[in-house]
Write a protein that binds this DNA or RNA. Sequence first.
DNA 1: TTGTAGGCGTTATCAA
DNA 2: TTGATAACGCCTACAA
Lengths: 336, 336
Amino acid sequence: MRRTIRDVSQRAGVSVGTVSNVLNAPHLVSKPTLSKVLEAIEDLDYRPNRAARGLQARRTHLIGYRLPGPGVSPALDVFLHQVVATAASHDLALTLFSPRPGQDDLEALREMVSSGDVDGLILSETNYGDRRVVLLHDLGFPFAAFGSSDLPFDFPWVDIDGAHGIALVVEHLVAQGHDRIALIAWPEGSKSGDQRVDGYHLAMERAGLDPDPDLLIRTNNGFEQGRRAAFELFGRKPRPTAVVTVQDELAFGVFAAAAEIGLRVGDEVGVAGFDDSDAARLMSPGLTSVRQPFEQVAEALVDLLVARLHEPDGDPQTVLVKPELVIRGSTVRTPA
Amino acid sequence: MRRTIRDVSQRAGVSVGTVSNVLNAPHLVSKPTLSKVLEAIEDLDYRPNRAARGLQARRTHLIGYRLPGPGVSPALDVFLHQVVATAASHDLALTLFSPRPGQDDLEALREMVSSGDVDGLILSETNYGDRRVVLLHDLGFPFAAFGSSDLPFDFPWVDIDGAHGIALVVEHLVAQGHDRIALIAWPEGSKSGDQRVDGYHLAMERAGLDPDPDLLIRTNNGFEQGRRAAFELFGRKPRPTAVVTVQDELAFGVFAAAAEIGLRVGDEVGVAGFDDSDAARLMSPGLTSVRQPFEQVAEALVDLLVARLHEPDGDPQTVLVKPELVIRGSTVRTPA
DNA sequence: TTGTAGGCGTTATCAA
DNA sequence: TTGATAACGCCTACAA
């Protein structure tokens, strides 16, 4: 049974205004009235109606998240869980949306904004010159983005330091005695991809290693892509001693290529990935990989958005979180 | 800029009621008025405010989904995507929730219901005697459940025919010439787990094979659990020729045990899983597994819920979808 | 400290 | 076919 504030007021023998005050400004209410009203609320299992509250306050207490396409986002469950939890702690609920068939991303966004269905938005997979960010910025609509960009204005974002992640991998490999370290990366033009390549170059340089351009291959995500790239790399003379990839699935392609050539992963060639997917843990040998702290990202995104909601004109904050290296058999030689 | 229905009515030179009719009952409006109003809507980029609409109609146009804990639900991205898309086609948006820390599932549910924040709910991981289902049924609140149960009343659910899935696996193995087929299943007491065991028994019987109780091991999810169970099974005399599991990760544990013993998966022992996870595809050999059609489930769940919303007292519908066998190297002998 | 009244944006009702 | 008006449930003034 759904109760209204009026039901409560009648049961407690007070006016609706007083009940409202109990909820929103308890310090204005006398002790006895307070407890009387609280009891009535309890008895009736009353909760304020969000729609009505939102209508009056021009706030929906809802934030929106543009759901990425299937297969795009590793650990979506972890991420969403933390977004929901953090949002709840701010008395906010999360609603998901994605463009309707035939509708483009910007239109979908514009619709979210003009319908007033949400107080703010969380974007992910931000990229160079991201038009969604430009749109929301121009409209002055509160948002926070997962991923930085290269736009001529500041906006609130949270990013994972991919350069640091790849650098951790390279450092680890160097410590293992590797000196011909190859990289399988994405084609140029994605912010997160380029960050990872930068991290590779930086770490190679710091280790005093010459980053041979022949050891950098660019390709899209995928097992087969990784396999093909690995064959190419294994054909180079001298052969790379280790292959780093910007995504786990690429690394599994490298596993396959190594097996076909008869190279033992771990002992004869080091292989590392990025994402710390389930498969990385389950594979044999396990795949050394970079774990992205999605919980932290989720929490930071909501916090940044909430800050925006409260102070739309404050300076946009940004957060860069450091990923973590998970070392497994694929980069470690088994003792003889 | 957020516009109201009043802005539109003024621009079009009609009353707000007429604008509302254009939106909700266009057949009541004359052609010229209609186009005048539509133009004004277009010009102002007007969208009705969901909160206000919901307040008046006692409908929020929001449905809620209880987010399962991280790691529980394979292919959450696929599932959510389809839920969002199907919901959108019914003019419904999806909102996620999960119990606050310290709050139990039933309380969270009760809160969703009494706040009136959502029109209906989608539950997942339904089990025997599911108290959430009982609660919502007793309250008469619209919902649809992913997973059937054993309750003394009917309710709308969608389930994947796990018995059929495991039966497909067994039939496939029999066709490959296997006759000692073991099963690693979950402990008794879960509906979906017991379904899968039933499917095993049924298919064994149909194949004229004696289901040796020594070849059925019950354990919880996990790599290590699968590995231990496999060691036990491989100790039986005569040794099973194939091991079926009710979850992929268990199967990878079997892979590991086989490798340690020196048994070649595929050639010397057949192994099959359930879920068709990414890892199943990426492993070498690939893991034969049962693919669950989560898109279909998602679509059916929303459709069932919508039916409920429109006709709360109709007979609850149920949908049982058939999973699909994906055959990979783990159950196929490589030709010599 | 408590009560009353107006309005948030929409839809439904009823009269014109 | 259209327009005026009263809800829907809540919060914020302001009055008592």
